[in-house]
Design a protein around this nucleic acid. Structure first.
Lengths: 217, 217
DNA sequence: CTGACTACATTGTGGAACGATCGTCAGATG
DNA sequence: CATCTGACGATCGTTCCACAATGTAGTCAG
């Protein structure tokens, strides 16, 4: 029913659930019942349980004792907090990158990622998902280029959460502005230093922080 | 056999194992066999399994598929990476704190934590564990004062890992220098800005990074 | 001594069961 | 009429048992 690559059942299920969460198939707040999932996937409840815990460890689900798991839902303040943490990682990564490898010839990974983002945005029929993916990839490349594995790993997790946020609040950067804004970002990183990244993220957070689409209240 | 507070068995076991890991009772690299633990605690294997996964999520244990779990062991480079991540969080927290609440009257929590550290160090018979705890508490107070929940949460996790590192490499700051170094740190945070924190951590990492005590090779 | 093969140990998963807890809803109470 | 209470069903937390899959170690032949 899905790609399902992975050595162990729990891994496969976790990945599948993750993709369903990030695609919006399982909407934020949606309850994840063990028995139901076990039936749906033809797995034992223990296996489902383990996968749900794993999902919770990635903060894509929230489990409360005796109350089960549900897809994580980020409110405005949670989103702000999330971006503050992202900023901490990305700013420091940018600083490390500048210190260790320099910014003038951008590292190849960054150049490639920036080019990919340009390409995705310049497509005749821009695919929103592709653009978002390229966007995330650029930020990731920037962080990874700093060469600090733990910062990179932590950032990857946050990127998933950010994608989750995108699912609930459709408010996102228009495709045509995406490219120029990030080309700008790279320029300003050279001129203004890592702080440019903080401002960039701050704007992104404010944009996404607007009223979630489809709020029921 | 241990405090064991918590609503669910898995929680209790996780906490107990965590304390045993952090106390050095379960040394780094030590294998954590499900059946053995189940017998020792009188719990089902599934329960132990869940606790081990939880421990792994906190990076206090490492599980490899079909090879079981073992207490996490940090080598020199892992420790360096860990402190780079810590630096990212603490520096940003310090920046936020300065921006939001100012540093001149230090927030009460920081003052208290600093006083506690002074007291622990000045004791007639300084208890190493108490000093280390007070040390961690000061760093934590500094980060928490910034008021960014996600940064605080992430930092708490890293603090546990740092304590784990202390377990393996006994190399740590002498008690008498601990107090002055941190009083210094607070001063320099005011004069030099958040960067002072980075330097502080860098020195700490280098100190701890020395050859682990009791290396068998 | 090396390599393949076998036997054991341990993990991964399934299945059934049962008490505990949560949520809900009807009925009693004021 | 609002609310409190208790019963009931749904779901979770945990246990026991079983077995296949995998990893590890030890043995034996060459």
């Amino acid at each position: 029913m899905s790609p399902a690559s992975g050595p162990t059942q729990v891994d496969r299920l976790t990945k599948d659930l993750r993709s369903r969460v990030l695609s919006g198939d399982l909407p934020p707040g949606h309850r994840l019942r063990e028995e139901a999932l076990a039936g749906e996937y033809g797995l034992a409840r223990h296996t489902v349980r383990a996968a749900l815990r794993a999902l919770a460890a990635q903060r894509l689900a929230v489990v409360e004792p005796h109350r089960g798991a549900r897809v994580a839902a980020l409110d405005a303040s949670a989103l702000r907090d999330l971006f503050e943490l992202r900023a901490a990682l990305e700013v420091e990564a940018a600083r490390l990158l500048a210190e260790r490898r320099g910014l003038d010839p951008w590292p190849g990974e960054v150049v490639d990622a920036a080019a990919a983002l340009d390409a995705a945005c310049a497509a005749t029929d821009p695919d929103r998902a592709a653009v978002d993916a390229a966007h995330a990839a650029l930020h990731h490349a920037l962080v990874a280029a700093a060469g600090s594995p733990r910062i990179t790993a932590a950032h990857s997790g946050l990127e998933l959460e950010s994608r989750l946020a995108l699912v609930q609040s459709r408010r996102t950067l228009p495709v045509d502005r995406m490219a120029v804004i990030h080309r700008d970002l790279l320029d300003r990183l050279r001129t203004d230093g890592p702080e440019a990244l903080r401002r960039h993220l701050h704007e992104g957070a404010e944009l996404a922080g607007g009223r979630p689409a489809g709020s029921a209240s």
